[in-house]
Every structure is written in structure tokens, then in C-alpha cells.
């Protein structure tokens, strides 16, 4: 018994770990700045290199115990483990978090033990707790000062250099594309202003879904009829071919009810059928607990 219980606990733990690992695969390195002279400042008022991590999932992810490294060949040699026990390591759905690559981990959870090197390629890897690589990026050496290297869209797209202009803005701790409208809605508003397109598409889908269901159950019904014919043939000791001549549809509810009533009349055979109602007088001993006299109020008279 104990062994079974242990096995069950192990299986549950393994399942939950797999679930956790699966969630963390949705983490993405989203934007990086190596030389920061005039941009975003940390809680101490200092500027420095930063790495933005994005949760591409639609549920929160706890990134405690994931690793950041800048050494592709030997990640262990230059590893920063995100501490356990800080509630801020839980990233909300589709949200971002910034790590300061300032080599000062004593400043807090989001300050790494390594620094990024200006003027040379910087490889950054994001590892899960089991040291499996989740995501990585090489930031080019020629990245200008105060420019970021970012994905064109959160968690997706090509990497591009952003210098902070009107169209290539730098977005630490926020979405790489600032959306002020829902693209789907504006598309429908512009391309289908009277709703014909939506009506045609949606009705086709609704009809398809129910038509598929209809055909499926038509088929299942035919199979059901076939098997009932087989059973009928077996019960009557006839060939299946002979039975096929008898239309199963003739066994309507009305006919069955008439046959049953005739049998009932002929055999007077009823005792335990659920359709027979028997009314017996039930006597119960008086108890003040069930007495209506002691009810809080009388029932209304209609």
C-alpha cells in the first residue's frame, strides 16, 4: 500500500515538474541593451546593460531557479541563477521583466552576477532549472551605444537594432510593439464594414460544425440499426438477410406500447414495473419535530 502511495506521489510530482518545464519553454529573451548612458535607470538610479525576458504564455510563469549565462560553451562558468523565494519572479501573462547585467547580484533579484561586454559579441542564454536551453541570442558587437537589440514583436519575429527614434523605439519592460488598437477589430471595421463577410464565414462554420455532427450521427444511427437487426436475427433464429426485409422503423413507440398493454391485460403480469403506481397509506409516529403545529409560519392559503 505504501509503495503504491509513493509511486502515486512520484508520478504526481513528475507530472507537475513536466508541466512547470513546459510553461517555462514559453520564456523569451526579448530585448537587450549593452551600453546604456542615457536610458532606463534601475531602482538605485544607475544606468547599465539590461536584458528583458518576456513570458509568451497566457498564464503566469515563475522564473525562480532559471539561469542566465553569457558563455555558450561552458554556461556553468558564467551563470546567474534567479533566486528562489522572491514573489517578483512571477511574471504575469504576456508580461516582461528586466535583468540588470551589472555584475552586482547583491543589489537584488534582478541584478545578475555577470556583465555584458561593450564592443564585442555578447551571447546570452536562458536555461531552465535542469540546464536545458530555453532561448538564446547573440547581440552583435556593432550595436551602438544607447541602442537596443530587440525582437520586432514580443516573443516572435526577427531581431532588429532600435535606436530610440519615433519608429524604432526602445521599450524596456514593455511591449516591443505598442498597440493602441486591436488589429482584428480594425481589420473587420475597414474590410467588412457591413458585416457580410463575417456573416458568410460564420454561418459556413456553424453549418459545417453541425453538418459534420449530423452526418456523424446519421452514420452512428445506421450502425446502431444494423446491430439491432443482428440482435433481432439472433433472437429469432433467422438469417440476417431475412431480417433485413423487415423495416426496423415499424417498431414505433406506439406499437410497442400497444403490445405491452395487450400483454399486461392478457397475463395480468405486473408487480414491480416502474410504471405501476401503488399508493399505500403510511402511518408515522407523532413527533413534535415534524409537527406542522410547531412550524414557524403557516403556508399561505391560495
Amino acid at each position: 500500500m505504501k509503495r503504491k502511495l509513493s509511486l502515486l506521489i512520484v508520478a504526481l510530482m513528475a507530472t507537475s515538474l513536466v508541466g512547470l518545464a513546459h510553461d517555462r519553454k514559453a520564456l523569451r529573451i526579448n530585448e537587450v541593451m549593452v551600453v546604456n548612458d542615457s536610458g532606463y535607470v534601475d531602482d538605485y538610479g544607475n544606468r547599465g546593460a539590461w536584458i528583458e525576458i518576456f513570458n509568451a504564455n497566457f498564464s503566469p510563469i515563475d522564473i525562480s531557479s532559471v539561469f542566465l549565462s553569457t558563455n555558450k560553451e561552458k554556461p556553468e562558468s558564467c551563470l546567474y541563477a534567479v533566486p528562489i523565494g522572491d514573489q517578483l519572479t512571477k511574471i504575469g501573462k504576456r508580461q516582461h521583466v528586466i535583468f540588470w547585467a551589472d555584475g552586482q547580484p547583491n543589489k537584488g533579484t534582478f541584478h545578475t552576477s555577470f556583465k555584458l561586454t561593450p564592443g564585442s559579441d555578447n551571447w546570452i542564454g536562458l536555461y531552465d532549472a535542469d540546464m536545458s536551453l530555453i532561448d538564446s541570442i547573440t547581440v552583435p558587437a556593432n550595436l551602438p551605444a544607447n541602442a537596443s537589440f530587440a525582437r520586432s514583436e514580443d516573443g516572435l519575429g526577427e531581431w532588429e537594432v532600435r535606436t530610440g527614434g519615433d519608429k524604432d523605439y526602445i521599450t524596456p519592460s514593455s511591449a516591443n510593439i505598442i498597440k493602441d488598437t486591436n488589429k482584428k477589430i480594425t481589420d473587420f471595421k475597414e474590410k467588412d464594414p457591413n458585416g457580410f463577410g463575417m456573416t458568410i464565414m460564420a454561418m459556413c462554420i456553424v453549418f459545417t460544425a453541425l453538418l459534420v455532427l449530423c452526418l456523424c450521427f446519421y452514420g452512428i444511427g445506421q450502425i446502431g440499426k444494423y446491430f439491432s437487426r443482428v440482435r433481432k436475427a439472433e433472437a429469432q433464429g433467422l438469417d440476417l438477410d431475412t431480417t433485413q426485409l423487415v423495416d426496423i422503423q415499424h417498431d414505433s413507440g406506439e406499437e410497442i406500447a400497444a403490445i405491452v398493454m395487450a400483454l399486461h391485460e392478457h397475463l395480468n403480469a405486473h408487480d414491480t414495473e416502474s410504471t405501476v403506481l401503488t399508493i399505500n397509506k403510511v402511518k408515522r409516529a407523532y413527533s413534535p419535530w415534524s409537527s406542522k403545529i410547531y412550524s414557524l409560519r403557516e403556508l399561505p392559503h391560495k
Partner: peptide, 20 residues
């Protein structure tokens, strides 16, 4: 009578008529 499912689909025209 699975073909009756299609009536349920047709009645959804009300939704998309009102949408327009």
C-alpha cells in the same frame, strides 16, 4: 433525427443579421 441539427444552425442567422 440528426438532420434537425441544421435547423439549429439556420436559426443562427439571427445573430449575424443583428450583427450587420
Amino acid at each position: 433525427n440528426p438532420k434537425l441539427m441544421l435547423i439549429g444552425a439556420a436559426a443562427q442567422f439571427g445573430i449575424f443579421g443583428a450583427y450587420m
